[in-house]
Simulated assay, not measured.
Amino acid sequence: MPKSRIFSKLILLGTFFMTLSVVGQVTYSDTFSSVSYGNNDGSNSFSGNWVETNETTSPSGGRILINSNQLRFQNLDNRSIARNLDLSAAVSATLTLDFNRTNGNESILVQLWDGSSYNTVATLSGSGSVNYNLAANEMSAASSIRFITGSGNWGTSETIFVDNVLFTAVVSPAIAIDDVTVDEAAGTATFTATHVGLNTAGPFTVNYQTADITATAGSDYTAIVGGVLSFNGTVGDTEQITVSISDDALFEAAETYSIQLTGSSDPSVFLGNTGTGTITDNEVVLGNTPLTLF
């Protein structure tokens, strides 16, 4: 075989193994194998326990509970349950689960948090399975799944069981940025950028900039263009981003801007996450209270 062909194959093989080293798979799973809202049966842990709304907080009592190694819903009207997970390092993610309606004709909605509201991704009625590929805005540090009624007037004995809730995520090295809210008199807003997901082969840099949402650069805050962050390549390393905030005398609603990641010296690093800055007003509204002159 000619040396040029051997060299080309070695390059392809090296690229293949490099790709393997910077992309991995993690799972978040609850098989409801014990009567607890804190089960973690995957490779990674959820961000917290299941949290009920308009219901008891017990996994062993109420209309939502764990029974026979399944999550049972009965007479569900005006009740829901949700659980959060961190998918900020995910390049892609899939949700699967099983369900079985054992009595009645009601339904349950499966909803995912999209950054501003819960989005319905499946309706559970009858028996079957769900297999859903998450959209980009459903993968963040604040990802969440919620089960809520999809119908009304549940009868006392109408029942649906859910089991084997599983998120399977492909992750890479990534940078996550927190959201920050400050009063306009604060002077600055400080964001934390965190290396999440997988380690990289070595140190790397990330470029960032600010962008207007409802706030205006120059009058509400000072724009940043061409900012650079330096990371050591290890998951958990953090860097700070400081934005100067302007104080004015105008009465106005809260205004927002974003921190955007624009490039990296390491092409394996996922840059899809953003941070949102919120500036609240500090002017005092007196309302209709009359002033007394002395």
Rank of each mutant, 00 (worst) to 15 (best):
287 G>A: 11
36 S>N: 10
90 A>C: 08
33 S>V: 01
93 A>L: 09
285 V>A: 14
57 T>N: 14
233 G>D: 09
118 Y>D: 14
285 V>E: 14
184 E>C: 04
103 N>S: 15
19 T>S: 14
77 D>G: 04
142 A>L: 06
110 V>D: 09
205 T>G: 11
249 A>Q: 13
191 F>G: 07
64 I>R: 08
78 N>Y: 11
87 L>H: 12
137 N>S: 13
93 A>H: 02
164 N>R: 04
11 I>M: 12
124 L>T: 04
258 S>G: 01
26 V>N: 01
111 Q>I: 07
223 A>T: 07
131 N>K: 09
66 I>L: 10
71 L>P: 02
135 A>E: 14
238 T>F: 03
65 L>K: 15
33 S>G: 14
165 V>F: 11
195 H>P: 06
179 D>P: 02
121 V>F: 01
45 S>K: 11
111 Q>E: 15
142 A>V: 02
161 F>P: 01
195 H>T: 07
184 E>W: 09
147 F>Q: 08
103 N>E: 13
294 F>P: 04
59 P>R: 10
77 D>M: 06
120 T>L: 06
177 I>E: 08
285 V>F: 15
220 D>L: 07
94 T>V: 15
177 I>M: 06
107 S>R: 14
74 Q>H: 00
79 R>W: 05
110 V>H: 08
97 L>H: 02
165 V>H: 05
13 L>P: 00
